[in-house]
Design a protein around this nucleic acid. Structure first.
Length: 363
DNA sequence: GAAGCGTGGAG
DNA sequence: TCTCCAAGCTT
């Protein structure tokens, strides 16, 4: 590993002073002012927010956090909840294995830890859905442990500070060592949050606002004018196109046939309308001949949706039917549809059949 | 280490 | 329109 200059010992004090003035107000956060007056973080709320924030923007998380924290205010409430209700409340936020692991984690904390989260990194790391970042973040923010918190923001800040040329993810080891060295024993949680706020508002991926940065004087990339060249990342792969068909079966009472997807894999455990398999084959099952049962299927349109590793083009068919004997699933009326555990792609498919169904959703 | 796993917003 | 990506984890 190339030798790098250690962060300046003033980094933490400069950053904390900046944080005291510029910390973002967030629903799950104890402000530095409140913290100074003795307000302590609630580990449950810290954990809940950290799980939701994995690969997800603050803006997207806010309404979901409010819903969860109001409906299930303690970890024991979440443990007592039905998994299906948790999945319904999570629908639309994405990365649905997070929701299943959230529920599993709440169950373990309630049943094996007396309803209290472990107060150290190793104990947290052993829980479902909690990896290296989240364990360190909860340990620091909720329990004042000087853990080395490294997320995407902090990777960006430190690769710029030290001009770390090693590409991600190989650079993580080097970054974690530098962050660990810079983390103070006092206010380690605020230090981590300060770094993340800095990355989100000042040390941004594009056109960072270095003139406003509290630690610009100790930033090597700033000195050489190469801010935007860090972090070094491997080239992205192109997303293949997959094709398929979705089938909206409507009963005469207006209800729609829904099915539960398998617990593992894409959209695992979530609800949807019946679809074909999604294949890269141009001659795959994309027409009404591949419908789950015979009916007077009418083509209603095409929707596209971009997943993490492929783009999907779905032909949407609709039919009015008397029933679907022997077909698994259940019938959901239009009023209850918004409350189902429907991922966005499924709402798109339903919207193609019923344009007025999800007025707030994208088409 | 690499692949799989969602979504919506910003530029 | 298109590219990038946002407080990553699991296998």
């Amino acid at each position: 590993m190339p030798l790098k200059t250690a962060p300046d010992p003033d980094l933490a004090s400069l950053l904390l002073a900046w944080y005291d003035r510029h910390a973002r107000a967030l629903p799950w956060r104890v402000s530095p002012a409140d913290r100074a007056h003795g307000v302590v973080a609630d580990p449950y709320r810290v954990w809940l927010s950290e799980i939701m924030l994995q690969q997800t923007t603050v803006q997207a998380v806010k309404p979901y956090f409010e819903t969860f924290a109001t409906r299930w205010p303690r970890v024991s409430d979440l443990a007592a909840a039905d998994t299906e209700d948790v999945m319904k409340a999570w629908a639309g936020l994405g990365y649905y294995s997070r929701a299943r692991n959230l529920k599993k984690c709440a169950d373990v904390v309630a049943s094996e830890h007396g309803g209290r989260f472990p107060d150290n990194e190793d104990g947290l790391r052993a829980l479902p859905g909690i990896g290296p970042y989240t364990a360190a973040a909860i340990a620091a923010i909720a329990f004042d442990r000087p853990a080395a918190v490294v997320d995407g923001n902090i990777e960006r800040v430190f690769t710029r500070l030290l001009e770390i040329e090693t590409p991600l993810p190989a650079a993580k080891t080097e970054i974690r060592a530098a962050v660990g060295h810079a983390t103070p024993d006092e206010r380690p949680g605020d230090f981590a949050q300060a770094l993340m706020d800095l990355g989100a508002t000042i040390c941004t991926p594009k056109r960072p606002a270095c003139a406003l940065c509290p630690i610009d004087k100790m930033c090597q990339a700033r000195a050489s004018g190469r801010q935007e060249q860090f972090p070094v990342k491997p080239a992205k792969k192109s997303k293949p196109l997959r094709l398929g068909a979705a089938f909206v079966a409507e009963r005469r009472d207006g209800s729609v046939l829904l099915v539960k997807r398998p617990d593992k894999g894409l959209l695992g455990g979530m609800t949807g309308v019946p679809t074909t398999n999604w294949t890269v084959r141009a001659d795959g099952e994309t027409g009404e001949k591949s419908a789950p049962f015979a009916a007077d299927w009418q083509h209603k349109g095409v929707i596209t949706h971009v997943f993490t590793h492929f783009e999907l083009r779905l032909e949407v068919f609709h039919a009015v039917v008397c029933g679907a004997a022997d077909h698994p699933g259940w019938w959901s009326n239009p009023e209850s549809l918004p409350g189902e555990a429907l991922p966005t792609v499924m709402k798109k498919a339903l919207s193609a059949a019923y344009p007025a169904l999800f007025r707030k959703g994208k088409s």
